[in-house]
Design a protein around this nucleic acid. Sequence first.
DNA 1: CGTCGAGTTGAGACGTCTCAAAACCTGTGG
DNA 2: CCACAGGTTTTGAGACGTCTCAACTCGACG
Lengths: 254, 254
Amino acid sequence: MLLSGAHFAAPGPEKIMASIDRSLVAHLPLFAGLSNEDLTEVLREARSIRVPRNAAVFEQGADASSFFLLLHGHVRATKTTPTGDQIVVRYVVPGDTFGVAPAIGLQHYPATATAVDDSIVLAWPSAAWPRLVARFPSLAANTLQTVGQRLQETHARVIEMSTQQVEQRIAHALLRLANQAGRKLDHGVQIDFPISRQDIAQMTGTTLHTVSRILSGWEQLGLVESGRQKIVLREPHKIVLLAEQSAGDSASRS
Amino acid sequence: MLLSGAHFAAPGPEKIMASIDRSLVAHLPLFAGLSNEDLTEVLREARSIRVPRNAAVFEQGADASSFFLLLHGHVRATKTTPTGDQIVVRYVVPGDTFGVAPAIGLQHYPATATAVDDSIVLAWPSAAWPRLVARFPSLAANTLQTVGQRLQETHARVIEMSTQQVEQRIAHALLRLANQAGRKLDHGVQIDFPISRQDIAQMTGTTLHTVSRILSGWEQLGLVESGRQKIVLREPHKIVLLAEQSAGDSASRS
DNA sequence: CGTCGAGTTGAGACGTCTCAAAACCTGTGG
DNA sequence: CCACAGGTTTTGAGACGTCTCAACTCGACG
């Protein structure tokens, strides 16, 4: 399962030969501390790839042949257990690195990355990592910071799952998504990519049924407006209150 | 809340002036790729500190003045939420780094570290990190790998909490602890530091009551032998089976 | 127009939590 | 050396949140 060639032939991601727009990426955390020339040198080794909606960038367990930076679109990282259960690890937003298995010493991708939107990614061959790091040590330092932050976020998720009930967890998840990928509308904030109840269930450790019930409830109260793979937060502030609500104090019962 | 001085005055950790035994640490992942002289130089900046049982190495939210390497003993890292809920992030075993907040760009410790055993730690001042990394880039690369691994482990924990029920999660937790800190006895494997039902509950996202009930059940079946802050796995293999058991297939009902 | 994925909703089962009380163990101070 | 104090563990009983199972609706797309 190499990145290029056969694997990408079927669903259709394709290389784009245009040179990469440096102004788009220069400010990213990954490249902090690099000069303009350094950046050019780093980017020279990357290819830009179009990934159509619902196509996989890489699959869990496959050989970690590349690491990536998302330029445009949205990518969902999921893990599947031997028993077939699946969870959503995170949603990748533009500017994020992902699939950094080579950097953390993994031979194989620990998750599957799927474009949920038509997306554009930069891809470096894994072999480039040690070379680039040797030449530009701040790449390692920057990536360390990023991975450290993700570790903190994942701990936060563990805490949520340990101490909060489903409604609070869903509220948190939606607020996080709205912050990362919210599109401001006049009647609220829309999560700017297709997302199903199932996806939310896999982010919060519950079932799509429970998610559906809770969102239906919120819709009744006018907190959200949701449809097929679409969610708009109409009252973000009230959802924040829901999220912070501790197990004891329940709301008015309609 | 600085590391030295007043903070450590009360419970009694004390500096040990003996030079650090290099043979003990030379093989650790953190130091991979360093020459003997490099190692000497790195160790020169560290102090060795004795931390008595139940004393804190650092507190969540405190200024991240140092980062650490555990030489001897065991340290529990915990996080407390604003509402007072607490979870166990992990148990640190000898050879592990911890409190690496400076490396991942955090100004304050995201968790509290408490010695559960009389322990000995190496401490470097935070200010040393950028200097050491500049001089020995493999430190950053090695730490990146370590943090990456921890991220994987934490994801595994999220998956467990999403897909398994309490009994399986406890089984997994105990097996992990036994692997990391198991002392082999003739009648089983003992977890080699004091650990309460409460601790296990905070590792697995449940209550001490449920942990107690389940361990009592296991004790009936002869799988474990447990007492006050003590657990011996008598039948590790059978516990592995329990851990792998999916939600559907329940055991024989006595 | 039929099919299929996404969402909704009800009813009941079940695992775990909560509340409560008691027994137990261990280190400490009288 | 004993008794007490405080943390740990056990166990019961009932409440409750969420899952499971099941059926149905809706809308998009070929």
